[in-house]
Amino acid sequence: MIDFERIEKLVSKSGKSMNEIDRELGYPRNTLAGLRNRKPSIGRLNEIAEYFNVSTDYLLGRKESKNNEELTEEENDLVAAFRMERKDMTKEEQIQFNKALKNMMKVAKDLLNDESNWKK
């Protein structure tokens, strides 16, 4: 059974309501709230874990740590944004998206290292 207290904490931390998150995930209204008394399907459990950037073991109360790795809050935010952006992409689109992001990170690092970009 899912650890509903963990769901509540994750929802609270997100600053959204359960119904807002239901809507973002494409679920019927009160789906998350219904997890208090029902087991989610494996697919739904995975989707919720991805949405909150936590492991399924964390949602099931098996692990104290939210992630496989300990990431900073900023890193968790980026991972969550990454997953949401590629959620509806085909596998091929996801591969292209990943390559584009890697190239953008190289450009961003080059810009960061160029002092002329930061002088006023």
Rank of each mutant, 00 (worst) to 15 (best):
G15R: 05
S55T: 15
A108I: 12
E8L: 13
E69D: 09
V79P: 01
T72S: 15
K66P: 04
L35V: 04
N53A: 11
M84E: 11
E92Q: 13
R36T: 00
I48K: 01
Y51I: 06
R23E: 08
D114V: 07
E47K: 14
K13T: 11
A49T: 03
R36N: 01
K102V: 11
I42D: 08
D114H: 12
D77Y: 12
I42A: 08
K9P: 00
L45D: 01
N103V: 05
D57M: 06
N67A: 05
P28V: 11
K87G: 01
E20M: 07
L60H: 01
M1A: 10
L45A: 08
N53G: 08
F97Q: 02
M18E: 07
N19A: 10
E5I: 05
N113A: 02
V107I: 15
L35Q: 04
M89Q: 10
N37V: 11
D57H: 10
Y58D: 01
I2A: 03
E8T: 14
D114M: 08
K91S: 07
N19H: 07
I2D: 04
N117Q: 12
L35P: 04
F97Y: 15
N67D: 08
L59A: 04
L10P: 04
D77A: 14
R38C: 03
V54H: 07
M18K: 13
S12H: 14
F52D: 02
S14H: 05
A33K: 11
A33R: 11
N98C: 09
L78G: 10
E8P: 02
L60D: 02
D110S: 11
A80E: 13
I42S: 10
S65I: 10
N67P: 02
I7V: 05
E64K: 15
A49C: 01
K13A: 15
K91I: 07
L101T: 01
K119N: 08
W118V: 00
K119G: 00
L32M: 00
G34K: 06
E92K: 14
G15K: 06
F97H: 09
E70A: 09
I95K: 12
A100M: 14
N19T: 14
Q94F: 05
E64R: 14
K119A: 03
V54R: 07
K120W: 12
K119T: 12
N103Q: 13
I2V: 13
L111Y: 12
A33P: 04
A108D: 08
L101D: 00
E93P: 03
V79I: 15
F4G: 00
E69Y: 15
K87E: 07
I21C: 01
R29Y: 13
F97M: 04
K63V: 05
K109E: 09
K39L: 09
E75Q: 15
K13G: 07
L101V: 09
Y51T: 02
E64L: 09
V107M: 08
N98E: 13
N53R: 08
R83T: 05
N37E: 13
E69I: 10
S65E: 15
A81W: 15
F4R: 02
